[in-house]
Design a protein around this nucleic acid. Structure first.
Lengths: 131, 131
DNA sequence: GTGCTTCCTAAAGTAGCTTTAGGTTCAAGC
DNA sequence: GCTTGAACCTAAAGCTACTTTAGGAAGCAC
């Protein structure tokens, strides 16, 4: 059995985050030592690892709840693969949106480079943004 | 002078969002009609447009505060361009992170495709995620 | 004057944590 | 046995950028 600090260290997250997951029921209620400190075993670490890996992939908590029950059920490939493929689509959509934003910003910058004059001339980026 | 609904429609945001911006001081306190309804002019629309364009580019509100004061000051190209270039760096970093996540997910999916057996075999994705 | 839409305020809810405040437990060193 | 410092505890508030809810009031068409 390991402490909450050790658990957090191994799963690469903070102690308050572990307590938070317990409070929302994403982790089961931890066992306690005599003094009241939480104590964890290998299974707890495995589950927290699963959660953190998913959060690193920006999978929302409610989705992870579904995944955790998948992982504790029959672990069917079909459902699991569908889950991750859906998540990839979400990420891809986000990448596309960000690329568009980047393009927009680069166009604004171009308008300054091509239209603004060197010395203290009011920058034209704003004229585009306020229209 | 136009109503808050009309303003929101033109700037492509919701009415509560406009009131929210006023409440945090990003928009100045609106003028009022006799009955108490807010009334806006062209300058208000320009400012809201500036704010929304930036939010569409995911620039945080506190950064937009700086930008608004830039836009109301001398509008120096140097400062303005630096502002937007910094923002592009932030967006680029986010794109890079998402691409890495996508790669991670695709590797997990590969492990299923290459290791899992067809019929009801427990999916191996979880073994990776829980390690 | 009777609806219907738009508007008003204030407060609470959202995600996913982090931070704060005020206290208890544990382990090491003397 | 005692002290000290780190790690732990709880509950509540704070964070971003809004959205939602509740309970009314104003404005406009018919």
């Amino acid at each position: 059995m390991i402490s909450i600090g050790e658990l957090a260290r191994r799963a690469q997250c903070t102690v308050p985050t572990v307590r938070y997951y317990e409070s929302i029921g994403l982790l089961p209620k931890a066992q306690r030592r005599e003094g009241g400190h939480r104590a964890y075993d290998r299974a707890d670490l495995a589950r927290l690892n699963l959660i953190r890996r998913c959060r690193d992939c920006d999978i929302p908590i409610e989705r992870i709840r579904e995944l955790v029950s998948l992982s504790e059920g029959q672990r069917l490939c079909g459902e699991t693969v569908a889950f991750f493929e859906e998540q990839r689509r979400v990420i891809q959509a986000r990448i596309d949106a960000l690329k568009e934003l980047d393009l927009t910003l680069s166009l604004h910058l171009q308008s300054c480079r091509s239209n603004c004059l060197p010395n203290g001339d009011p920058c034209e980026i704003f004229d585009q943004l306020q229209a």
